[in-house]
């Protein structure tokens, strides 16, 4: 279940990240960036927080620049909708 959110500085990096997550079959959903967490890029990516460490490694390997990764309980509500 989705329980985390990744924030980015640039939407360009979101697009790169989304592509990589899809390629490796990670559960992901692009959402409007949660204002309470980050005022940066307009879009963020919800994901399963249990996979946070794996994804950090993956992003490092694929040179994806992200702002931060957060535990985001709100994502569970989102999960119920999609």
């Amino acid at each position: 279940m989705m329980s985390g959110v990744i924030t980015f500085y640039s939407s360009q990096q979101v697009m790169k990240a989304e592509k990589i997550l899809k390629k490796y079959n990670y559960e992901e959903l692009l959402i409007p960036g949660p204002r309470e967490i980050s005022p940066n890029c307009g879009v963020a990516i919800c994901f399963d927080y249990n996979k946070a460490e794996e994804i950090k490694e993956l992003f490092k390997k694929e040179k994806i620049l992200y702002e931060n990764i957060y535990y985001y309980p709100e994502a569970k509500k989102i999960s119920k909708w999609f």
Partner: peptide
Amino acid sequence: SPGRSGHRMSIEASRLVEETR
């Protein structure tokens, strides 16, 4: 509008820009 809003039409525009890159 690419990279601005969070709705699907905006996201699709961002994807298009990145695919062009």
